[in-house]
């Protein structure tokens, strides 16, 4: 099936099998491997991307469902060589260890801050509940989101 998508601002068209998952499309067809696959059950959140402005788990979306959509992946967050404040927060606050969950975690944080620019710690912890991290115990991730919130609202 033919689909047209805009990924990180670039308009592209592809021919894909209906059963291809969006995450595999992004990784294997578009070639953006920053988005990861961590489970098959829509629970770990490693595959999170922005689809028409909503954070979604791209392992639970068919590529054909994204026809006509605008997609932002982790690769699309930094602009003109400058890190996005959330990326900066993760770096400054040691919000990652192995880094595998990080792209999805950053996307989840991105959605959270769009909807709630000054979240409480509890808001942050609930806001990232769809993203599992096995390394950090989450505290430095919370710090990272708070860092970004502060930077983005002042």
């Amino acid at each position: 099936m033919k689909i047209e998508v805009t990924v990180n601002g670039e308009h592209q068209s592809y021919d894909v099998e209906p059963r291809m998952l969006l995450v595999h499309f992004l990784r294997d067809v578009v070639g953006l491997t920053g988005t990861h696959v961590g489970c098959e059950t829509s629970l770990c959140g490693a595959c999170s991307v922005m689809l028409n402005g909503d954070a979604v788990k791209s392992c639970t979306v068919l590529a054909v469902q994204a026809n006509g959509a605008e997609i932002t992946t982790i690769e699309g967050l930094a602009q003109n060589g400058e890190l996005h404040p959330i990326q900066e927060g993760f770096w400054e606050c040691h919000g990652l260890q192995c880094g595998f969950c990080t792209p999805g975690m950053i996307i989840a944080a991105h959605q959270l801050l769009e909807r709630n620019p000054k979240p409480s710690e509890a808001d942050i912890r609930r806001g990232i509940e769809g993203n599992l991290c096995r390394c950090t115990g989450y505290q430095h991730i919370v710090d990272a989101v708070q860092y970004a919130s502060k930077k983005m609202t002042t």
């Binding site: 920053g34 990861h36 696959v37 690769e75 930094a78 770096w91 880094g99 595998f100």
Partner: peptide
């Protein structure tokens, strides 16, 4: 971290 927070790292997959 810079490679990991920008999706520029290379895991096996």
């Amino acid at each position: 971290d810079p490679r990991l927070i920008q999706g520029l790292a290379h895991y096996v997959d």
